[in-house]
């Protein structure tokens, strides 16, 4: 077991491993800091942690290497991703600076700290590795356990208490007391009628002849998009795919050709609501004047036939 790694002498293989994996670890760290999306940062950090686990294994810390993978990349990073999911994945960092020049100052401070550390380490002279051959003689885990439960047993107990307190604290912090009682369905209905906003169900999205995706707003009879038909989440993110004006124009052209073909009056295109209301009144008067004459049915089939012919 100890012959595998963590010997006093370091092999060329270990040097190669160090330089290759170390580069990747630093890149992962830089990615964590520099990438704008929090999810990308989390993935970079997970990569760095896996590489650190490999370094632990190479240094004879077999138990810690496995714990690093299980606890850090397995549990802690998943917890991070879980909270990111709760808080909103799309939440990118804002580029607005509250304090002027704070970012540059921070980068400068980081650089200063880095030089200080590197120069400080450069002053130190160390020998080679002593190696863990003697310490790991009975295996890494039994050796760690015998140390943990004798020399460090008090610290171990305290850490146990800390974990318990942390678990209780987390549940206490995220627990929400319900201040008022839940509204029943009947109370909600009464409230909605009193408020007078949107009594019937909202219109369904994408009831447009060509697109039935949820991010396409339905079209009102005059061809203008119905914003209410798209989910509020998509609306607030600005992910509504507008029925483009050229598409509306194409539709109007088809309508017009159909009308010409059948000798109907031409379709005037989308109108604003005021004009529409006015027209409805005049239409009602005309209807009364015509007195029960059967109106021409809306010929949707004609449009389709025209399209198929092309």
């Amino acid at each position: 077991m100890t012959a595998l790694a963590a010997t006093a002498a370091t092999s060329t293989g270990e040097a190669v491993q160090f330089w290759v994996l170390g580069t990747v670890a630093v890149l992962g760290g830089l990615g964590t800091v520099l990438l704008r999306r929090a999810v990308h940062s989390a993935l970079c950090l997970a990569g760095t942690m896996i590489i650190l686990a490999l370094f632990y294994l190479a240094n004879g810390a077999y138990f810690l290497g496995v714990v690093q993978i299980v606890v850090y990349t397995g549990a802690v990073m998943m917890l991070f991703l879980f909270v990111l999911m709760l808080v909103g994945v799309s939440a990118a960092d804002s580029l607005k600076e509250t304090l002027k020049g704070q970012r540059w100052m921070a980068a400068l401070c980081g650089l200063g700290l880095g030089t200080l550390l590197i120069v400080g380490i450069g002053q130190v002279s160390v020998g080679g590795f002593n190696g863990l051959a003697a310490a790991n003689a009975q295996g890494n885990v039994p050796a760690l356990a015998s140390l943990l439960f004798t020399k460090y047993v008090v610290a171990f107990e305290v850490v146990g208490a800390l974990l318990t307190v942390a678990a209780v604290g987390a549940t206490l912090l995220t627990h929400r007391e319900r201040v008022e009682k839940n509204k029943s369905q009947r109370e909600q209905a009464i409230e909605r009628v009193r408020g007078g906003t949107q009594l019937p169900p909202l219109p369904a999205p994408g009831v447009y002849a060509r697109h039935n995706a949820v991010d396409r707003p339905a079209l009102l009879p005059d061809g203008s998009p119905a914003e209410l038909s798209v989910s509020p989440t998509l609306r607030s993110r600005g992910q509504i795919r507008e029925v483009s004006s050229e598409q509306l124009a194409r539709l109007a052209a088809i309508e017009q050709r159909t009308a010409e073909y059948q000798g109907r009056p031409t379709y005037p295109g989308p109108k604003d609501p005021g004009e529409r209301a006015l027209e409805r009144e005049t239409a009602g008067e005309e209807e009364a004047a015509r007195n029960g004459q059967p109106s021409e049915p809306e010929d949707a089939a004609g449009t389709e036939r025209e399209e198929a012919a092309k």
Partner: peptide, 18 residues
């Protein structure tokens, strides 16, 4: 030391608490 420095700079630079 390099990784520690990168982390420290990140704490100062980034605005997202996570």
């Amino acid at each position: 030391a390099l990784l520690f420095t990168i982390g420290a700079a990140g704490v100062l630079i980034r605005r997202n608490a996570i």
